[in-house]
């Protein structure tokens, strides 16, 4: 029996696995699964009476998974560089980032504007498509760090907000 921990969406999930012939018997939470290897990175499993093919590959401290076409990642907490899975900018609701490296088509707000959650803030062009980025908080525009036409990466905030205190 081999017990392992993974991070899924910020939470720790445990799984204990043992070999059963060429198959794997795994317990996770209150559920038990039997996996059968089906080739490189592939396993089949009976879930709720329905046979699924799963793909999984470990890469740089993350497990990339496809189960019934749900694509998601788990993080191995023992790997160096674990920084909490999920959205890289999950906590920074006061900053607006480009979803992809691209070009700023139009900034739709000005410093001092009060903005509300889901309000369009900026249009970024990537892969020849315009993507609208919306505010994730209510607040006031504190700073705008780029102009229309600028190239942006995903690491530098385009717009910074002063978040309104919750009522």
């Amino acid at each position: 029996m081999n017990s392992l921990e993974f991070i899924f969406d910020g939470d720790v999930v445990e799984a204990s696995v043992e070999r059963a012939g060429e198959n794997f018997r795994v317990k996770s939470g209150d559920k038990e699964f039997l996996f059968r290897p089906e080739g490189e990175n592939l396993f089949s499993c009976l879930v709720n009476g329905h046979k699924s093919l799963l793909a999984v590959v470990a890469h740089q401290g993350k497990y990339y998974i496809d189960y019934d076409s749900h694509q998601f990642e788990l993080t191995d907490p023992s790997e160096d560089g674990f920084a909490g899975g999920g959205d890289a900018h999950g906590g920074d609701k006061d900053k607006i980032f480009a979803p992809m490296p691209g070009k700023i088509v139009k900034i739709l707000v000005s410093v001092g504007d009060s903005v509300s959650i889901k309000q369009p803030m900026v249009v970024v062009e990537a892969m020849k498509m315009e993507n609208q980025v919306n505010s994730r908080a209510n607040g006031t525009v504190k700073a705008i760090n780029f102009s229309d036409g600028d190239q942006v990466d995903t690491e530098t905030p385009i717009i910074e907000l002063e978040i309104a205190p919750e009522e």
Binding site: N2, L4, F6, F8, D9, D11, V13, E14, A15, S16, V17, R19, F24, V26, K27, S28, G29, K31, F33, F35, P37, E40, N41, F43, C45, V47, L54, V56, V57, A58, H59, Y63, I65, Y67, H70, F72, L74, D76
Partner: peptide
Amino acid sequence: LREIGAAVAACAATNGNSS
């Protein structure tokens, strides 16, 4: 996804799949 994801990741880790 939570449980089945952890379960299949555990299989991969045990099976030494890390390509």
